[in-house]
Design a binder for these strands. Structure first.
Lengths: 212, 212
DNA sequence: GTCTATACTTGGATAGAC
DNA sequence: GTCTATCCAAGTATAGAC
């Protein structure tokens, strides 16, 4: 077996290791320092490797940031889809949303997304790339709404995709505000209220059904 | 009369002119290039003056950006308060919100706010300064809700300040998404839906009132 | 594949002429 | 008060040694 590196692991595995370390560090920096603070030096420093490797492995800083966003997106999609399995009432969905929102705040995944969207303004072409990576979020929101309201006539009154857009926007806005003052209290209180009101939505759906 | 400058206007007025030009340019750059692109050189270039004047007049780039945020905040507060005068039904409030949202997208005022919030992550201490300047937004949302639902028992079910927080978050999120793909369609469609549903809210309030 | 060294560019900030 | 010139720090990106 041919070995080029100095360590015991094969070269291609070491490469994968540094790629992973860089992507992970990029998430970290994006979360704590924001888009404007996400420089090659800062990220490489946190990954414990040399600054030049950013360009060797990803070509540019922006590409690395997009790779970080990819990882976050994939991780969130898996988490969301798994969680959705066990839900079929509106109040359950709201409770799930609250839990996942809290998780995303802890992991910083939501912050990564927000910083990339806001940061997209400063780099030509980045906007389109970020937009592609948002689609799964929208799709999930639509799926979640339909899984809960699928048999309710409410979705004949309001378009699911429109509500989904609102949900995603609300999610991003809440992250923005929570991150600003380091206090998720207002957001969590909101989820609590929503959960309390969830039965009303189901009730409303039934009312509409009877009127038909 | 003492004159130091080369133009006909007195020196102190010229100074005020450049200050205004810089603040205006800062808004512009924040809107089009984002926080990461808001550098002293870029801003001064758009203001048509020298880069050093940023530091002479404002001490640092961040201070100039905060001044820009101040101006936007003041302008929005005046606009909001004036508009609120002529509203007392929920559907009117929603229609007003839609119009103002559209205005803020055109003027870029919403973008300035979002970029400053997201950018706050990259500069220590900026978060607190931005937070102070958000308060008026919250206050306005509370006032708007109370002016419309003041006599409705709905505000005894849900706290106005909590709903206001959600409204502000939704507003920021919609701006974030609209700006990302340069398409305000989904957001405007949402306002249209909300307006259609507004009478239901009033109806619900009346129902609750009768039950008492 | 990784690291060191380095070229080049941009940005923040100040000093001194006008 | 404004402009030019300049310094220095930080950032992107590449070349070449290991």
């Amino acid at each position: 077996m041919v070995r080029t590196g100095s360590a015991r692991r094969p070269a291609n595995e070491r490469a994968a290791d540094t790629r992973r370390a860089l992507v992970s560090a990029a998430c970290d920096v994006l979360r704590t320092e924001g888009f404007a603070g996400a420089t090659a030096r800062t990220i490489a420093g946190r990954a414990g490797c040399n600054q030049g490797l950013v360009f060797y492995h990803f070509g540019s800083v922006v590409n690395l940031l997009l790779a970080a966003l990819d990882e976050v997106s994939a991780r969130r999609r898996d988490r969301y889809e798994a969680a959705l399995e066990s839900v079929d009432k509106t109040s359950e969905l709201v409770a799930l949303a609250a839990q996942i929102f809290s998780e995303d705040l802890d992991s910083g995944d939501a912050a990564v997304l927000v910083e990339m969207i806001a940061g997209a303004a400063s780099t030509p072409g980045l906007g389109a790339a970020v937009k592609e990576r948002i689609a799964p979020w929208n799709n999930f929101a639509v799926a979640a709404l339909e899984s809960v309201l699928g048999r309710s006539p409410i979705l004949q009154v309001v378009e699911a995709s429109e509500v989904a857009h609102a949900v995603v926007a609300l999610y991003l806005g809440l992250e923005l505000l929570s991150h600003l003052d380091g206090d998720r209290g207002p957001a969590m209180a909101l989820f609590l209220q929503a959960r309390r009101l969830a039965p009303v939505v189901d009730l409303l759906g039934n009312q509409l059904k009877e009127e038909k």
